[in-house]
Design a protein around this nucleic acid. Structure first.
Lengths: 248, 248
DNA sequence: TCCGAACCTGTAAGAACTGACAGTTATTTC
DNA sequence: GAAATAACTGTCAGTTCTTACAGGTTCGGA
């Protein structure tokens, strides 16, 4: 297969500044590599329990409708795989055992009705629970085609990271998530111990300062995080990555 | 370049059940692909502010000592890149501008003294803040070599995910992190609203149950999470991914 | 039919947190 | 030298959490 346009796709992804452009690049590369269509899907957490879902796809209209209608998102093995893995998945290796096995088999059978006979899923994860996947499908499941898919996996995987990078860049520009405030050392320390369940008094003992001072720092941290109690502060700080282990 | 052994490496990674075996596979593939050495590094968060660091490497002894001694982990641009990106980095594209530019230049210069003339970094992220990278270096930085590195990136990237997968599998077997408990729907709901800063009474209003019942559920959740107050429960639940947005 | 799991509710005392009062000290920056 | 920032400390009233007491209902599986 011809991978010579690989660098061009990467450049196109890096230049893209709208979802439509990303769609175009994905479509082009899927076509060039001989695939029948693609689907890029990402979930970008915006708050604790909410996430923005971005879908960029050239899947057949009928299949997308069916998928919606039957709520196949709860069955789709490519999504499960992406959640639990970092490695590529070729669809011929999907397992039909387990309690959802029958549902999955039906799902895959229905997919073939719309031309998705074979394909692969390339997971991409980024920090803080962001997850994305690039699916490509082929309208044949011959041995030769399976082999072709297999050999294009490395390139697809790499392109998937660039696709994801550009989506993140574009979405971030539009500012879905609020920026994290800058905490002082003490504020971070106090928050961290709070997250470990310590009381103000205990934290004071740990840090060698008075209980009142701990309250002071936590109050300041709370103001910066725009919250009104410690439970909320802990949740915010963690999900903003403010308490994450530092390098080294 | 010859990528025909690609599937063999993958199989070896999947079969490996010790860090030493992973070392061997990485060494083999780096050698086969013409690289002078490799470094796989991962940070697997174990608790809120702590992470296990796993390093598997064939870097020159002298360079590793120097790196330790000078605490280059704070300077190393491959680590910064891995933290902030999902895409591969070829070392010739490292930027020397910015406030740490001079330090980074010195770092890279010293690296060349030990034979690291060119190379690439392949980031791998998995859920819950886990991050890893595969570095490979070459003892020449000729144009031809740069080209060679570039063309092997897709394969390296894919192999990096398999390397990371096997490390995760091995480490998980040895149980660094405790398993997440199963929460009931109500427990999860109450915890979620608690993480949003709501009081018991408020949560009762939201869920249409009494304040006492909310306390009851939070108590049970706390017991399962093995914590003694809500701040700790919120922290635990979030960092275990129990409150993460469901696929819907 | 009995059991466990999930869900629901009440009272009450003491511990912990929150918010508003009112400050001090040291360091850095303009 | 003034201003800003980080760190530090105290009291007090009111709110919320924690723990321990003692129950009840519903539903599905053994």
């Amino acid at each position: 297969m011809d991978f010579s346009k690989h660098p061009q796709y990467i450049e196109s992804f890096q230049r893209a500044d709208s979802i439509e452009e990303i769609h175009a690049v994905c479509g082009e590369l899927a076509g060039d590599l001989g695939f029948g269509g693609f689907l890029y899907g990402a979930r970008l957490p915006t708050s604790l329990a909410d996430a923005a879902t971005i879908i960029i796809t050239s899947y057949p209209e009928g299949w997308r409708e069916r998928y919606e209608e039957k709520r196949y998102i709860h069955v789709d093995p490519t999504i499960t795989h992406t959640h639990n893995n970092v490695t590529p998945l070729t669809w011929d290796r999907i397992s039909y055992s387990g309690k959802n096995g029958e549902k999955i088999r039906q799902f895959m059978n229905e997919a073939t009705e719309f031309g998705l006979h074979a394909g692969a899923t390339l997971p991409v994860h980024s920090g803080q629970g962001e997850a994305a996947m690039l699916n490509v499908f082929s309208d044949s499941s011959s041995n030769k085609e399976q082999q072709r898919i297999l050999s294009s996996l490395p390139h697809l995987q790499m392109l998937a990271t660039y696709a994801h990078e550009s989506v993140r860049r574009i979405i971030e520009i539009r500012e879905i998530a609020p920026a994290a405030p800058v905490l002082t050392t003490r504020e971070r320390e106090c928050l961290l111990w709070t997250a470990e369940g310590k009381t103000s008094w205990e934290i004071g003992q740990i840090l060698g300062i008075s209980e009142r001072t701990v309250i002071f720092h936590l109050q300041n941290a709370g103001d910066k995080l725009n919250v009104s109690n410690r439970r909320h502060a802990v949740a915010r700080a963690i999900s903003m990555g403010l308490l994450a282990p530092h390098i080294a």
